[in-house]
């Protein structure tokens, strides 16, 4: 029997992806990215002088990400302001992006990336990272490449690409394992997390599946950037 996903998607099929840059005119770079109903918006300010001054690093610039969910982005209202979860995702996002960023070009400066989740249907950190990578490129920050992020799910024993909320809450058999992964187009891992239960062999499969999937996201990101440039 083939596995049926609740919304009828194929195993490796992602929800409709949308990406657009230049959505916040005030920012130096900005982008909106969505996986179906999950929508993230990111804006870049900088490079600009780091304040407080004692946080300045004369060897390289600093990437400072801030992930935030709007209070009404989910069913049960989230209390506004930072939480332990959002603090962690902010840092994870910095780590996911920094490998491709030529941050050493900006000693003493800071690049701020503000990510807001407008609407959440799982995979919000992945949408946020994708939007942030686009916004940084849109801001003209020198980068070795983009990064693309996707969440691979293991529902009971079946691997699926781009987990939505209903799948995240899947409880049959071995339940749901969520593995958000961020990669460069070459397939180097800049971020990986996992929650659930999986064997080492299965995890290796997950990584290969992610490698295949991020390429598709990369194409959409690239297209969005190209469209923003008037020829």
């Amino acid at each position: 029997m083939t596995f049926k996903r609740s919304d009828g998607r194929g195993i490796e099929e992602m929800r409709p992806i949308k990406a657009e840059v230049g959505v916040v005119p005030n920012a130096d770079g900005s982008a909106i990215f969505s996986f179906g109903k999950t929508v993230a918006i990111a804006a870049v300010y900088g490079p600009r002088k780091m304040h407080p001054q004692h946080q300045q690093d004369p060897e390289k610039g600093k990437l400072r990400c801030n992930y935030n969910m709007l209070s009404f982005s989910v069913d049960d209202r989230i209390r506004p302001g930072p939480s332990r979860r959002s603090t962690e995702i902010s840092k994870i996002t910095e780590w996911a992006l920094e490998p491709v960023l030529l941050i050493e070009k900006y000693p003493n400066l800071v690049i701020d990336v503000h990510i807001n989740i407008l609407q959440a249907d799982a995979s919000t950190r992945c949408a946020g990272i994708n939007a942030a990578a686009l916004a940084l490129a849109h801001a003209g920050i020198p980068m070795k490449n983009l990064v693309s992020s996707v969440s691979i799910g293991k529902l009971d024993k079946q691997l699926v690409v781009d987990v939505d909320k209903e799948e995240e809450d899947f409880e049959e058999g071995e339940g749901s394992t969520d593995i958000p992964i961020t990669m460069t187009p070459e397939g180097d891992i800049t971020h990986i997390q996992l929650d659930g239960k999986i064997s080492i062999e299965e995890l290796k499969e997950v990584v290969q599946l992610a490698k295949k999937s991020v390429k598709k996201i990369y194409e959409v990101q690239k297209k969005a950037l190209k469209e923003s440039v008037k020829l």
């Binding site: 920094e98 491709v100 593995i179 460069t184 971020h191 997390q193 996992l194 659930g196 064997s199």
Partner: peptide, 11 residues
Amino acid sequence: LFSIQKGGIKE
């Protein structure tokens, strides 16, 4: 494996 988290600034 139950939980994984990558940290740090390199791929």
